[in-house]
Amino acid sequence: MLVKGYNIIGINNTFPILNTTYKGINILVKNSDGYIFELQIHTYQSLQIKEQNHKLYENSRLASTSTYEKIKINGIMRKNSNKIIIPSNINAIKK
């Protein structure tokens, strides 16, 4: 899809996915020079939780974090994301 010189390569809408650690819309875009970039679309609440979960995510990626702790952190991130109010008609955004 070409919009004002930008080509939308893909859209990933995770708002409707149950029990995930991240809720947002990620859009891959290619400009006329061939550069690819990502747009993240959030509600105020989903952005706040994304930032909160990102800190947990970074801790879970450490080599020093045990498998048990990684599972525990993942559960906390899913619980946080499950609190996000899903915008109406969000399922219409897809590619």
Rank of each mutant, 00 (worst) to 15 (best):
K23W: 00
G5P: 13
L18C: 07
L62Y: 06
E38R: 13
L2D: 06
K55M: 03
K50C: 00
G75N: 14
I41W: 03
Q52T: 13
S88F: 05
Y57R: 07
L18I: 13
Q40K: 12
Y6K: 11
A92M: 08
K83P: 02
Y44T: 02
K95L: 08
N91G: 04
S46E: 02
N12R: 15
Q40G: 12
N31R: 11
V29M: 10
T20K: 06
E51A: 14
E51K: 14
E38S: 14
Y6C: 09
Y6Q: 11
I73R: 03
S64L: 09
T20M: 01
T43L: 02
Q48G: 13
K72F: 06
E58V: 15
K30N: 14
E51Y: 06
R61V: 08
I9C: 08
I25H: 03
E69A: 15
H54L: 07
K55N: 07
K70M: 11
I85R: 14
N74F: 07
G5K: 15
D33H: 12
V3W: 10
N19K: 13
A63I: 07
Y22L: 10
I84H: 02
R61Q: 15
L62W: 06
T14H: 02
I90C: 01
Q45W: 01
N59I: 12
Q48R: 15
I93K: 00
I27D: 01
L2H: 06
Y57G: 06
K79G: 05
M1V: 04
N80E: 05
M1P: 10
N89M: 00
L39E: 07
E51H: 11
K70R: 15
I41V: 14
K23I: 01
L47P: 00
Y22H: 15
I84V: 13
Y22C: 06
I90Q: 00
K83M: 11
M1F: 09
E69H: 06
I17V: 14
H42N: 11
G24C: 14
N82A: 10
I17T: 07
I9W: 03
T21E: 13
S32P: 03
Y57K: 05
Y68V: 12
S81A: 14
G10D: 14
T67V: 10
N59M: 13
I85T: 12
N53I: 07
I86N: 00
N59F: 08
Q48S: 15
K72G: 01
Y68G: 09
Y68D: 10
K4H: 11
I85S: 09
K94T: 08
G10L: 09
I27R: 04
M77N: 01
I49M: 05
K4G: 07
K83A: 04
S46Y: 02
N26M: 08
I17M: 09
F15G: 00
K30D: 06
P87R: 11
S81N: 04
L56C: 09
L47F: 12
T43I: 03
P87T: 07
D33L: 12
I71E: 11
S64M: 06
N53R: 10
G34R: 11
I90A: 00
K70H: 04
S88I: 03
T43W: 02
N31T: 15
D33A: 15
D33V: 12
L56Q: 03
E51D: 15
S46R: 03
G24W: 00
N19Q: 09
G24R: 10
T67Y: 10
I41A: 04
G34N: 10
G34M: 06
P87I: 04
H42M: 05
I71Y: 09
E51V: 03
N26K: 15
Y68M: 09
T65S: 10
K23M: 02
G34Q: 08
